[in-house]
């Protein structure tokens, strides 16, 4: 399922002193089965963009097509000016069947505390599927499946989600979304607050989910993650997309990195040093430490 943004704008608190433009003329296509990383400074509009993906936020203007679901707030013009009356009418219309959209696109928020509330882990994971009309039995089945995917065994099922550690809580929260079996999984800064081991497991999990055919769209400040896993990097700056390309293209653009206060991944920095020393490495082949080692090995031969 592909997601298409056409000239999407979003402004917080329109008409108030605290008015803030968060997205400016965003046009982008998230292709079918993509792994896209959103990067950019805090306040560059990453979270706002993510929330547009399943209509938690509706654009101020612009058009978003999510599979066959279309949210059309594109500007109407009359005599060269924006036709405010028509826009108002458009905005008044209620979106139909928003649930079907939310089933296809699942968002995992940064803090799992925001969604856990049931007495037991299992019940909490079952909550989502049941909302989307699954029977108790079916919901249980998908929940077992989802909990297995996030590596929580049956000893967790009957525990209260509130007595778990931060990493475990997050896994329960993700299982809660996975149980919906979404086509697109959206994650808002998923690795914040996880320990090194937790982060590694978590990223492997996401890779796994991706390889099973689910699109992944995530926002992050972790450049190693972007280089290693993402197929596409989307760099946002002040609500605008400044670059949408493979991570390698981004990390070659020193000027852009500097402007967005991004740091190159450690492996690439290391590779740069090696290249300076005269080793003819091909940066394009480097994604993580094993691939760097392989590349060095190739050069030595």
């Amino acid at each position: 399922m592909s997601i298409k943004f056409e000239k999407v704008n979003y402004t917080y608190d329109i008409g108030l002193p605290s008015e803030k433009v968060a997205l400016r003329d965003i046009s982008h296509i998230f292709s079918d089965h993509c792994f896209t990383a959103l990067i950019g400074k805090t306040g560059s509009g990453k979270s706002t963009l993510l929330q547009h993906l399943n209509a938690l936020i509706l654009p101020t203007s612009g058009k978003i097509s999510i599979g066959s679901y279309i949210i059309d707030f594109s500007l109407e013009y009359k005599d060269g000016k924006v036709d405010e009356r028509k826009m108002k009418r458009k905005r008044k219309k209620k979106l139909k069947d928003i649930k079907s959209l939310r089933k296809k696109v699942g968002i995992v928020f940064q803090f799992p505390e925001y969604q856990l509330f049931e007495e037991t882990v299992l019940k909490d994971v079952m909550f989502g599927p049941k909302n989307f009309g699954k029977s108790e039995e079916e919901a249980k089945k998908v929940s077992y499946e989802a909990l297995k995917q996030v590596d929580l065994d049956s000893s967790y099922y009957e525990r209260s989600p509130f007595e778990l550690s931060g990493g475990e809580k997050r896994r329960v929260a993700i299982a809660g979304i996975l149980a919906l079996e979404p086509d697109v999984l959206v994650l808002d800064e998923p690795t914040v607050g996880l320990d090194a081991d937790g982060e590694k497991n978590f990223l492997n999990l996401i890779k796994d989910i991706y390889s099973r055919g689910t699109s992944i769209i995530l926002s992050t400040h972790n450049m190693d993650l972007v280089l290693k896993y993402a197929e596409n990097a989307l760099l946002l700056e002040d609500g605008k997309i400044v670059l949408a390309d493979r991570p390698h293209v981004l990390f070659k653009n020193e000027e852009l990195l500097k402007r967005s206060v991004l740091r190159k991944p450690k492996v690439l920095e290391f590779a740069d040093e090696l290249i300076k020393k005269g080793l003819p490495l091909n940066v394009e082949n480097i994604f993580d430490i094993p691939s760097l080692a392989k590349e060095i090995d190739r050069c030595k031969r």
Partner: peptide, 30 residues
């Protein structure tokens, strides 16, 4: 919280009274 629960299919505006009540607990407890 409302957004997080809405992604899990909670609809705070529609549904029968019992469903609404359930939806409310999913907001209040977190």
């Amino acid at each position: 919280v409302i957004k997080a629960q809405a992604s899990r299919g909670v609809d705070y505006n529609q549904g029968r009274l019992k469903e609404k009540f359930k939806a409310l607990t999913s907001m209040i407890i977190p």
